[in-house]
Design a protein around this nucleic acid. Structure first.
Length: 924
RNA sequence: GCCCACGUGGCGGAAUUGGCAGACGCGCUAGAUUCAGGUUCUAGUGAGUAACAUCGUACAGGUUCAAGUCCUGUCGUGGGCACCA
């Protein structure tokens, strides 16, 4: 317990939350909307009772949180960390004059709701609604300035209608490699040998961005669904940690690989944490190298390999195919057939977990076949081994054991020859297992010699030679795979797709027309997948079978679908005829030269008076680095290509908040019993203290442990702020009245409280102004660079100082409240209303009060304290006039009584004077 | 194994450009207020010393008049990737 309540937050916070709700204080306006009389935004910008066009509206500021999945457990203290940061910035930017879009919504499709439904028989809609209500109550109790009129819910038909609509766009597009962008499928040109309608259909279907394929996919038995690569971690499902196996199934895929290069290179145009960009780069996994063709001896077959080290071709002493490689059966000799078949069975039986984690030891068998090394015509044996992956490159490698770890290990185990072809720069380094760049050796034939060339030069030369001789060519490979987009689930968006049979009985798919949207899921009593891997939707036969004999697609979309574009729906949430109107998209996402909205002397560094394209700031956890953030960028690029959005990238600037650990420094978890529930903190200390503490803990992006004692610290600070403004006498009266008041009168209790009589409408003294302006400067600069902790510390310094003032000028305190408001909006509003009633006949909110300017002239000191060092060690601090010249400073330093003993008997060799900063006397 | 961050008091952290290390807060110590506890207020609080001196930003070197900050190496912690040829 913290003892006596520092100030009546329990009355203030609900009062202002209700006020903001009723007044729609934080509503953002789309171009063309009528701005009502009296709305504080309209009042501030002079738009009362006007319909305002995009060009007349102030520059926008779109600040976005990663919307939560509303789980049954409710909010934990980690959620509000990012939300508090964005709320502070949203409020700050409103004060700065920007038109702020700050929305919130629910990413509500997903496995937990469905699994709960399977257990209890409750419809997921029901539990989702309950969970959303809990989340909304908790989020609202923190006083965040969201525009709730723009709330979205990915499971609402009004929303997923448009998710399905975007899917249709993906379905009806293909990626044109010549223009390097998505184009309508109608633009597709057919090759000469594609003639019949059926051939054309099949060709078309093979080119769509959303396409069907029968491919090995990750199947999770326990979850009863397939999963995307990104959802599989260490051979287990990301959700639940269940084992997954590779299984060939017919599935919907999205052609994200077509965008690999753009997803990679456009990272350079956005302001994201370097570590996060690096994760995406690694995930995309671009590597440049060459394809090389090896002729199989005594055969027509050719094996093509991908290598990043074509310069080591002379050192290739054997080849390895993945066990699944197409050529394996063709080239295997009769004597080796049995061994190869056995090995293939052995490899197929291994789960991916075994194939990676447990495969410390290399395995493989000889196929009996030999290939010809194209540079030296040597016959080299062809093996199969599961250390070569079918899914990367060509599924086959040339092995250069001298200069590749894995090949070296394999060669050692199976006694294959090792030939040096790279000389390490340092002659002491063993060439065996040397992987880095060096000089080529032993690499000559009658036509070409690489000997003596550096690795990069050798790469270039051999690649050109291979190309000339049609033995290979330069290639780029990506690790990125196409996105597996279908799930065997109930609680997800149904596909707007039906299946038909052509006259020859072949099954084919067809898109439903836009008019058929939204495609609603059927009612079901049983949400379980069927045991044969059919999705739960297949149980609803009435729904599946259409009158004309066609059938509906029964897969659903993955959870990520809804979150791929929600930031666009916020722009125009209620639009029934488009996913977002052009005008709204242009205003909120487009880049437009802004009028200087900023009324301070220091605009935010990353905008510099210009609006930024896309979302100005996106805050969320790092767990979405390669899932949501890659998928959303991909969809956005497709929408950009098709002309539906105006920017190449959705999120201009992104910041990851760190995780909040438990009080024991461990990750919060139920099993550890170290979970902190925000509701408990709010009851005890109030929302303002909670918000302030979350920001005071340390830098936003750092992970840091929770400490409830620390909440008390900022709570005490708010108590001091309160006592700075409120008359002590009236507080005693208030406390007495509170103990006797009945419920009806409690709302009026706050009126008992009076302003501190020390607050007077007088001019501020120069030291008071200096204190104020130093605080304005610090808070403003810190907010511009997201340093919330030091901004709060600056306000603490201000309050500690202001407490000592006998007379407190009202103008100074008003400015201070505007600084405090983004951080602790409830108490700031309450105190503002007390000040305001004495000055302004129209008290409403300080949410749009102009951010104070700081005056640099007021911060100039006439006397400075200058450190005096002798040989770099601090010996004294002297007072000097700010405009004292170097000679004066030097003389003063030499005269210092404290510094003198350290100079006695020594020669002064040098005096270094940094103006206004420091004097260093070097003696010896 | 590879890649990327980060190592500062008893604790969370500050030091924005190489220029007074430890702002602000927690905790702790003493005092005032109080019957008492709590609250609030005042003073102190890196180690060390009677006081100076001296030492001090993971460790070892280096550059510099001056290094938490720059360079080299080592160790440790966290995160990501992991047979990707």
């Amino acid at each position: 317990m913290s003892g006596r309540r520092q100030y009546p937050f329990h009355l203030i916070e609900p009062k202002w939350q209700q006020h903001w709700d009723e007044q729609q204080t934080f509503r953002a306006w789309n171009p063309g909307e009528l701005l009502p009389q009296g709305h504080p935004f309209a009042v501030r910008h002079g738009f009362e009772n006007k319909t305002v066009a995009a060009n007349d509206l102030p520059p926008k500021y779109y600040i976005l949180d990663m919307f939560p999945y509303p789980s049954g457990a409710g909010l934990h203290v980690g959620h509000p960390e990012g939300y508090t940061a964005t709320d502070i910035l949203a409020r700050y930017q409103r004060s700065r004059g920007r038109h702020v879009l700050h929305p919130m919504g629910w990413d509500a499709f997903g496995l937990p709701a469905e699994q709960y439904a399977i257990k209890t028989g409750q419809h997921p809609r029901k539990t989702t609604e309950v969970n959303i209500a809990t989340f909304k109550r908790q989020i609202k109790s923190l006083g965040f300035s969201y525009d709730w009129s723009r709330e979205v819910d990915t499971t609402s038909p009004d929303y997923f209608k448009w998710t399905q609509w975007i899917f249709l766009k993906l379905y009806n597009s293909w990626f044109n490699p010549e223009t390097n962008k998505a184009e309508p499928i109608e633009n597709l040109k057919y090759p000469a040998d594609v003639k019949t309608e059926e051939q054309k259909r099949s060709y078309r279907d093979s080119k769509r961005i959303a396409f069907v394929t029968e491919a090995p996919v990750w199947w999770c038995e326990q979850l009863g669904t397939v999963l995307a690569n990104e959802e599989v971690v260490d051979g287990k499902s990301e959700v639940g940690g269940f084992p997954v196996v590779r299984k060939p199934m017919r599935q919907w895929m999205l052609r994200i690989t077509a965008y690999a290069e753009r997803l990679l290179s456009d990272l350079n145009t956005i302001d994201w944490p370097e570590s996060l960009k690096e994760m995406q780069r690694n995930w995309i996994g671009k590597s440049e190298g060459a394809e090389v063709h090896f002729q199989v001896a005594n055969s027509e077959s050719r094996i093509t390999v991908f290598t990043t080290r074509p310069d080591t071709l002379f050192g290739a002493t054997y080849m390895v195919l993945s066990p699944e490689h197409k050529l394996v059966n063709q080239i295997t000799t009769p004597e080796q057939k049995k061994a190869v078949e056995d090995y293939k069975t052995f490899a197929a039986g291994k789960s991916d977990l075994e194939r990676t984690e447990l495969a410390k030891d290399k395995t493989g068998v000889f196929t009996g076949a030999y290939a010809i090394n194209p540079v030296n015509s040597e016959k080299i044996p062809v093996w199969i081994a599961d250390y070569v992956l079918a899914s990367y490159g060509t599924g086959a490698i040339m092995a250069v054991p001298a200069h590749d770890d894995r090949d070296f290990e394999f060669a050692t185990k199976f006694n294959l020859p090792v030939v040096q072809v790279v000389q390490p720069p340092d002659s002491k380094t063993d060439w065996r297992g040397f992987l880095d760049d060096g000089k080529a050796v032993n690499s000559s034939n009658a036509q070409i010699s690489l000997d003596g060339l550096s690795t990069p030069e050798a790469k270039k030369k051999i690649a050109a030679w291979l190309e000339e001789k049609s033995l290979g060519k330069k290639t780029i490979n990506y690790k990125l795979r196409d996105w597996l987009f279908s799930r065997q689930r109930y609680w997800g968006e149904p596909f707007p797709i039906i299946w038909k049979r052509d006259p020859s009985g072949n099954l084919y798919h067809e898109a439903l027309p836009e008019s058929a949207l939204p495609v609603l899921p059927p009612k079901l009593d049983d949400y379980k997948p069927t045991p044969d891997g059919q999705p739960p939707l297949a149980r609803a036969q009435d729904w599946v079978n259409l009158p004309d004999g066609s059938t509906r697609e029964t897969n659903t979309m993955p959870q990520w679908a809804g979150s791929c574009w929600y930031y666009l729906r916020y722009l125009d949430t209620k639009n029934p005829s488009a996913f977002v109107s052009k005008e709204a998209e242009n205003y909120w996402m487009g880049s437009r030269r802004g009028n200087e909205a900023d009324n301070s002397t220091n605009p935010p560094p990353h905008v510099g008076g210009y609006e930024t394209p896309g979302v100005d700031l996106y805050v969320g956890g790092t767990e979405h680095a390669v899932l949501h953030l890659l998928y959303a960028r991909f969809w956005h690029k497709v929408l950009f290509d098709l002309g539906y959005v105006s920017t190449r990238e959705p999120f201009f600037k992104l910041v990851n908040q760190g995780i909040i650990l438990g009080e024991d420094g461990q990750k919060m978890s139920k099993s550890r019993g170290n979970v902190v529930n925000p509701d408990d903190i709010l009851v005890e200390y109030g929302a303002d203290a909670f918000r302030l503490y979350e920001m005071f803990m340390g830098p936003l992006e750092m992970s840091k442990p929770w400490n409830t004692k620390g909440v008390e610290g900022v709570y005490r600070f708010l108590g001091r702020v309160w006592r700075l403004f409120v008359d002590e006498q009236s507080e005693t009266e208030f406390e007495q009245a509170e103990t006797t008041a009945d419920a009806q009168r409690r709302g009026e209790l706050l009126n008992i409280l009076k302003l501190n009589p020390a607050i007077k409408d007088v001019a501020a003294t120069p030291p008071q102004l200096k204190t104020l302006h130093a605080t304005i400067k610090k808070v403003t600069e810190d907010l511009d660079s997201l340093r919330f902790n030091t901004a709060i510390s600056a306000m603490m310094v201000f309050v500690n100082e202001a407490m000592t003032w006998e007379t407190k000028p009202i103008s100074v305190l008003r400015d201070f409240l505007i600084l405090l408001a983004p951080f602790a909006p409830h108490v700031a509003e309450e105190l503002w209303s007390k000040l305001d009633s004495t000055l302004d006949p129209r008290p409403s909110t300080l949410a749009y009060s102009a951010w104070p300017k700081f005056d640099a002239a007021l911060l100039i000191e006439d006397t400075l304290e200058i450190p005096v060092q002798v040989n770099g060690k601090l010996r004294d601090v002297i007072k000097a006039s700010a405009n004292a010249d170097n000679a004066t400073l030097e003389a003063a330093a030499k005269a210092s009584e404290k510094a003198k003993p350290f100079m006695e008997g020594k020669t002064i060799r040098k005096v270094i004077i940094v103006p206004k900063k420091l004097i260093n006397i070097v003696v010896g």
